[in-house]
Write a protein that binds this DNA or RNA. Structure first.
Lengths: 224, 224
DNA sequence: ACCTTTTTGTTGTCAAAACAACATTATTAT
DNA sequence: ATAATAATGTTGTTTTGACAACAAAAAGGT
């Protein structure tokens, strides 16, 4: 393992190669190789490791429930990914796919971020709480951004509903927003949104009754 | 200080009142009282403390460069605020104002989140890096959301330019996006944005030349 | 200097979505 | 049960901003 290189990445800045090696060994870091196209993680799952690209490149890919694909980001050598999910208990809403033959370093949050010698157990718990808080909030913010970047009202709704389906692991699910709250969340007008929902129902894309929604028309592939 | 209460807040979950007291004393936590309307922090500054509301309530307020005010959030008893800025080196883009007579607990990030006994100094550095990373990302995400929640193109531009002015502490500043990048960031069409910029120039709100912008006409309110 | 490519600005058209106003259906209280 | 209130759906009008197509200016290369 190239500790010198790793010690220059964002997470290990300030540590020497030797110190980095020490941390990695006591954190049970793991390395794995991926062929182009192989999945590193899948949307809908939870993870407990931070990932760093040692070789190659990774695409962070978003797939909605109707199968539309969108590459959100390309992560290259030295860059970290999945760190927010690794710090929270939220499910992933993207897939990570090797864009080419790649080597990925996996670091267990549990080992890496919570001091190994529990000298100051109180602090350790506070640190844990804080990471959980920041990580979780980050995920929620990213999710909101991903649901509101589309310029079209229908796409925003699709994005939101797709996530609900993923989260609840079912194409039939209940949402916790009322219409006004959902409109606010998606940054759109309530009546326009209601109208668009009607149209989507007419078009056979979805069905709903009150706050229960069904995603239909799934001839199109879903989530791989 | 009501350690029992504090031990039930997000940051101290899992700690007993006694453990919480221990952490707070070794973290040099400070308490301060505020009258209604007093500022707890100001937009444009940096902070090194996490804040928790012990009594009263706090408004997180956003002011754009033209003076329009917008209450983004109300933080009540037991809730934490400013934690992301405290974990990053980014400037605040909101003000925190006491909504009523309030008591605020200030916790130094430095003392609180980096273990007091430097038994495992390597880990300590990694933790620091990780907090910096998560906190900074958080701020950037929030900033983007705040610039894109407005439904109007002009308001989005105003929001973005206002922040630039705050960040660069000047009503004349250079932006690091080209037009296409800015449009992507604000989730709008480039040509529509260019057009709106022209109109804003005609309306005397701003002036610009290439990537240098001036905010003008600071008396006029907009978009009320 | 010249040509090529990229970036930015301008204009007109059109569709999408905001907005307004009201109808209908739930929900809650009395 | 009935009235009152809130939430949701529907329709028509108006406005905004996306989109397309092109012009002008700037940047980069030879």
């Amino acid at each position: 393992m190239d500790f010198s290189f790793i010690s220059k990445t964002e997470l290990f800045i300030g540590l020497t190669a030797v110190e980095t090696e020490h941390v990695l060994s006591c954190s049970q870091a793991k390395i794995k190789n991926y062929q182009k196209g192989e999945y590193i993680y899948h949307s809908g799952n939870k993870i407990d490791t931070i990932c760093i690209v040692l070789l190659g490149g990774v695409h962070i890919v978003y797939n909605d429930a109707w199968g539309n694909e969108n590459i959100l980001n390309r992560v290259t050598r030295g860059q970290m990914f999945a760190e927010n999910n690794a710090c929270s208990d939220e499910i992933l809403f993207t897939n990570a796919v090797a864009a080419e033959t790649s080597t990925i370093l996996f670091l267990y949050t549990e080992k890496l971020l919570y001091p190994c010698h529990a000298i100051c157990a109180y602090h350790s718990k506070v640190i844990r709480n804080m990471f959980l808080s920041l990580g979780t909030e980050n995920i929620k913010l990213k999710r909101k951004i991903s649901h509101t970047t589309s310029r079209s009202l229908r796409q925003r709704i699709i994005s939101f509903l797709s996530f609900q389906a993923t989260e609840q692991k079912s194409f039939c699910f209940k949402i916790n927003f009322n219409r006004q709250q959902l409109a606010d969340y998606l940054c759109v007008d309530r009546s326009a949104m209601s109208n668009e929902l009607s149209k989507m129902k007419k078009d056979g894309l979805i069905n709903y009754e009150k706050n229960v929604f069904w995603i239909k028309d799934l001839k199109v592939k879903y989530g791989v």
